[in-house]
Design a binder for these strands. Structure first.
Length: 412
DNA sequence: AGGTAGACTCGTCTCAAATT
DNA sequence: AATTTGAGACGAGTCTACCT
């Protein structure tokens, strides 16, 4: 293949992406599925910012794990309230600071000033002096500011108690001045706060909003939204989205992390593109999952400890999954395939009860996923799936089956 | 450890009666 | 005539008790 050919093949390659940006972590979606209450709570806390601006300095604390929508909620809220204020003739600015990057008091304040575009020299002033300059500037120009301190834990750690105290109790010294700075703090958990002195802590915790990990149903809605934004129509089916949502949802054993769910969708799309496929297939998702969740690789280790019949069952599951091309297959189908495979190997198949035991075992070892059928299926059944890439897994399973069979013959 | 039988449970499916 | 509703059929795991 000539260089030219290679270039062409890359350029002309079919793409499934309409707008990849919608899958990057920085992307701010137009709406926030399942975060409505949090926005409402924020609105409740900050409403006097609009109704009686300057009467008090408002603060809220957002707490939750990774990828549960804290940052994006703050951003969207900031954007909206800024525009709402504007309609009221109020100059309210929103500033988002990532304390992971700016983790000292000096860095935070200068970043605030920079983002506001205020002409204050950033060098040669102490944080305190900068703050005073900032306050007098916004007083002069009648500006209000909502500052989000994202990853506040870092700030607490490196900047320490005094810095937090300074920020939080800023207005204590000047009770009569208009309160123009308002804060949203974002942290993963509240442990970092315990290093603060109790009064400062209670000051911050006045308004606490908790973010719970996403359930798979919620992730589904989020992923559908992103899919519609990022992919061409009919390139990613609902089944695919469901599969990702189920493997990441907190209620299905995942982490409830939307960020990684979206990343899986991105990587799956890239895998499809890489293979020149015009649609995203389950196999692409499985590949993506192994990249984002290296612990899946661990699964292949655990295979070593399985008994022969469990291996055969895994193989049966792999084959039915592949034959069906769906994310889940019914236990009955797998059992049938299992019996067929046993026949091939000339082994006596185990009966139903035992199969059921195996399935439970495999489930507990996290080698396969199992869930009870809900709506849409006649009767009650257990649906089985595998997260790991099928091809690689089957190869491994085959090896192990052969090994078991030979050792068994030798012992006989 | 593996198997059998049978009762149990749940949720969909079907179809017809009831309702609008 | 069209839609809604609900009882019972039915499918398919699940559980239990007991056997080999």
């Amino acid at each position: 293949m000539s260089v030219r050919d290679m270039l062409e093949s890359v350029i002309k390659r079919v793409t499934v992406f309409k707008n990849k940006d919608a899958l990057y972590p920085e992307f701010i979606p137009p709406t926030l599925p399942h975060r409505g209450i949090h926005i409402k709570q924020l609105a409740e806390i900050f409403k006097s910012l609009i109704t009686s601006p300057g009467s008090m300095s408002l603060r809220a604390m957002l707490v939750g794990g990774i990828g549960v929508g804290k940052t994006v909620t703050a951003r969207v809220f900031g954007y909206e309230i800024k525009h709402l204020a504007k309609e009221q003739g109020l100059d309210l600015r929103y500033v988002h600071i990532n304390c992971h990057r700016d983790r000292t008091l000096y860095e935070v304040i200068s970043e605030v000033i920079r983002q506001l575009g205020i002409p204050i020299p950033l060098r040669g002033l102490s944080p305190r002096e900068m703050m005073i300059a900032l306050l007098s500037y916004i007083e002069k120009h009648n500006i209000y500011v909502l500052i989000t301190l994202d990853e506040f834990d870092y700030f607490i750690h490196t900047a320490g108690n005094d810095a937090v105290y300074f920020l939080v109790r800023l207005y204590d010294e000047y009770p009569d001045v208009k309160k123009r700075l308002n804060f949203i703090f974002i942290a993963r958990d509240l442990t970092a706060l315990s290093t603060l002195d109790p009064t400062t802590e209670s000051y911050i915790l006045k308004h606490l909003i908790k973010f719970e990990p996403y359930r798979s149903k919620e992730l589904y809605d989020i992923l559908i939204q992103r899919r519609d934004l990022a992919f061409y129509e009919n390139t990613v089916s609902e089944d695919i989205i469901k599969f990702i949502a189920d493997s990441e949802g907190i209620d299905k054993g995942g982490e409830g992390n939307a960020r990684s769910a979206i990343e899986v969708l991105l990587l799956a799309g890239e895998a499809a593109e890489h293979e020149g496929s015009h649609i995203v297939l389950l196999e692409h998702v499985r590949k993506a999952l192994t990249v984002t969740h290296p612990d899946i690789v661990k699964v292949s280790d655990e295979l070593n400890f399985l008994q022969l019949h469990e291996l055969l069952l895994v193989k049966a599951l792999i084959r039915t999954l592949r034959a069906k091309g769906t994310s889940f297959v019914r236990i009955g189908e797998v059992e049938e395939e299992y019996r067929y495979i046993c026949q091939l190997y000339n082994i006596k198949p185990r009966k139903h009860t035992q199969i059921y035991e195996y399935v439970n075992n495999l489930k507990h070892m996290n080698i396969i996923n199992a869930k009870l059928s809900g709506k849409g299926l006649r009767g009650r059944t257990t649906l089985l799936s595998i997260v790991a890439p099928l091809d690689a897994l089957e190869k491994r399973v085959d090896e192990l089956i052969d090994k078991r069979l030979t050792t068994e013959r030798n012992t006989l």
